Amino acid sequence: LVAIALVLGLAFCIERIIYLSLAEVDAKKLMAKLEAALEKGDVEGAKTICRNTRGPVASICYQGLMRIDEGLDVVERSVVSYGGVQAGYLEKGCSWITLFIAMAPSLGFLGTVIGMVMAFDDIQQAGDISPTVVAGGMKVALITTIFGLIVALILQVFYNYILSKIEGITSQMEDSSITLLDMIMKYNLKYKK
């Protein structure tokens, strides 16, 4: 059971790491391209840049640019709401990883209890308490506990790595949103002239 928790937990970790790696882009480079397009007043070109760039940062910028004609307030609300949706996608599946982190030691302790029951069962059948009689059950108890703790530690390391990647992407999304709104204000000023 502990091995199954490890395999399933690692599967969720690997899926998240791949998804988050694909979601990462060079946000500064993207924003520079967008600024160059918006400086010329080329909103369609800016939208195309966002469409051709993968990841949540580009998606958020695209949502904002789609509503550029409706005013800055609408753009800001759109960017904030869509940012929440994208953050949800980034965190999807993390609750399963925390479940397996919590389950692994519990399953290990369950193995401990089963091992102790086996040890006492062996004592009862043998009719005396000798180290050789108790050793098998005690060995099962200790091995499952150790394995449960090791699985939890491995999954915890992966989970913290995933959380740091999510925080990095979320911070890129927030920075890019603010930058986009600043650019749209500049663009609107130029547009009015």
Rank of each mutant, 00 (worst) to 15 (best):
109 F>R: 02
93 G>S: 08
76 E>I: 03
157 V>N: 12
142 L>M: 11
134 V>Q: 01
52 N>F: 11
34 L>R: 03
61 C>M: 07
51 R>G: 02
7 V>R: 00
144 T>G: 06
22 L>S: 11
52 N>P: 07
6 L>N: 03
78 S>V: 06
178 I>C: 05
86 Q>Y: 03
177 S>R: 01
172 Q>E: 13
146 I>T: 06
127 G>Q: 04
121 D>K: 00
165 K>C: 10
43 V>T: 13
33 K>D: 13
118 M>R: 09
97 I>P: 04
144 T>R: 05
158 F>Y: 14
13 C>M: 09
192 K>I: 15
64 G>R: 05
86 Q>K: 14
42 D>W: 13
30 L>N: 03
170 T>D: 09
22 L>D: 09
77 R>K: 07
100 F>W: 13
124 Q>P: 03
26 D>I: 05
52 N>K: 15
50 C>M: 13
124 Q>N: 15
48 T>I: 15
192 K>P: 10
105 P>T: 06
71 G>D: 02
141 A>D: 01
117 V>L: 11
152 A>I: 03
41 G>M: 14
61 C>A: 13
134 V>F: 03
97 I>G: 06
163 L>S: 07
100 F>C: 12
75 V>T: 08
37 A>C: 13
17 I>H: 05
46 A>M: 09
52 N>V: 08
189 L>D: 10
90 L>S: 07
108 G>R: 07
70 E>Y: 10
55 G>V: 08
